[in-house]
Amino acid sequence: MDLEDLQKLIELMNENDLVEVEIEEGEKKVRLKKAGADQPVMPPQAFWAQPSPAGQPGGGGPAESVAASSVEGDSVTFNSPMVGTFYTSPSPGAEPFVKVGDRVSQTTVLCIIEAMKVMNEIQAEMEGEILEVLVGNGEAVEYGQPLFTIKPR
C-alpha cells in the first residue's frame, strides 16, 4: 500500500462515514466500521419535543409574557415576549383588540405579534386597565420592548 492508496482509502472512508478500516491482504480480511455504529439508537423526537421551561406543560412561547413586565409606580409596563411585527387588530381595518381605558383580564388578547408569518396572539395575563399603547400598528418590536402600560386591579 502506497501513499496514493492511502489517500484513496481516506476519501472512501469520508464518503461512507467510516471511522475504522482494517485490511489484511494475505488471507484477505476486511473490517469496516461506520460512524455512530456504537451509539444507542435514540427514539425519534418531534422537533419541538424539548423540555418546556419551568416545568410548565405546554409552556414557552408567548404565554410567558408576564415575566417580561416591569413595575413603575402603580402601573406596569407589558413587555414584548418576542421579536416580530406588532399588530393592534386581528386584520387590517378591524377594531383594535384593546384601547386606552379598556378593562382587561388574564385572557384578554392585547395584540398580535407576527414573526415568520406566524400570528401570535398575546394575552394580558393580568387584570387591569390599559393606560397607554406604546407601539404603533405594524411597527417592529424587540424582545422585552414595552408595548402597553397597564394599571393592575
Partner: peptide, 12 residues
C-alpha cells in the same frame, strides 16, 4: 397542534 415549539421557532 396542542404541543408545539416555544416560539419563535422555524415552525412555518
Amino acid at each position: 397542534l396542542l404541543e408545539g415549539p416555544p416560539l419563535p421557532a422555524p415552525l412555518p
